[in-house]
Simulated assay, not measured.
Amino acid sequence: MRAYVVEDNATIRENLAGTLEELTCVRVAGGSAGEDEAGRWLADPDHAWDIVIVDLFLKNGSGIGLLQRIHRRVPQQRVVVFSNYVNASVRKRCAQLGVDAVFDKSTEIDALVDYCARLCALVAAAQPTQA
């Protein structure tokens, strides 16, 4: 599974990428710190992605702005929010924007890893077996 990580803190972005690559089948294809760069990368037809992980507070723009930009995507692509700013209102807004899952950075990193691992299992199960 190819991921794109949108996180303004480079250390968090790199650590998250390393964790996901070590513990799941996720391979991070790219990442950025801001809405505009992420929007351009995700819209480029030469860049294939299966999951995008978005923080809400970015260097430029916002995660909500990016979510609005990538609202239309193929059904197999997943969009996940991973932020320190998660409450009932944020979860509701994310659901309205078609976000597949929302995780709080401070308490739900394991849940994010588990979510990605489950997606990996689903992808593996959908692959045809070779005789």
Rank of each mutant, 00 (worst) to 15 (best):
I109S: 09
R40E: 13
R78C: 06
V113Y: 01
S62R: 05
I51C: 10
V6M: 05
I109G: 00
A43V: 04
V54C: 15
V26H: 04
F82M: 08
L16A: 02
M1T: 12
D44N: 14
V86P: 01
A43N: 09
Q76L: 04
I51Q: 02
L67G: 03
N9V: 10
L58T: 04
A126M: 10
I53F: 09
D46M: 07
L58G: 11
A111E: 06
E21V: 05
R2P: 11
R118L: 11
D36N: 10
V99P: 05
S106A: 15
E37C: 02
A131V: 11
A125G: 14
I64M: 03
E37P: 02
T24S: 11
A125R: 15
I51N: 00
L56W: 06
A111C: 08
T107V: 13
V81C: 04
Q127C: 09
N87Q: 07
V79A: 13
G61Y: 06
I64G: 07
A3F: 04
D114E: 14
L20G: 07
Q68T: 12
I70F: 00
I51L: 15
L119R: 13
L16H: 01
A17N: 00
T24A: 11
V26G: 08
F57M: 14
A88Q: 10
Q76V: 10
A117Q: 12
D114C: 05
N15Y: 07
N87S: 08
K105V: 07
E14F: 02
S83Y: 05
F103P: 05
A95F: 07
A124P: 08
Q77C: 00
D110I: 00
I53V: 13
V5C: 01
V90L: 08
R91P: 02
G18P: 03
L67M: 11
V6H: 08
V74M: 12
A131Q: 11
V79L: 04
L16S: 00
R118Q: 14
G18D: 10
R91T: 07
N60G: 15
Q77S: 10
S89N: 11
Q76A: 13
N15M: 14
R27M: 11
V74H: 11
S83I: 08
G30S: 08
G31Q: 10
D110Y: 01
E108D: 10
A111Y: 02
R69A: 14
A125E: 15
I64T: 12
Q96I: 00
R40F: 07
N9T: 01
V113T: 00
I109D: 03
L42G: 01
F103E: 00
D44I: 09
Q77P: 05
G31T: 02
A10C: 06
A95N: 09
F57H: 13
L112P: 06
Y85M: 12
V90C: 06
R2C: 01
A111P: 02
A33F: 02
Q76K: 08
T19H: 07
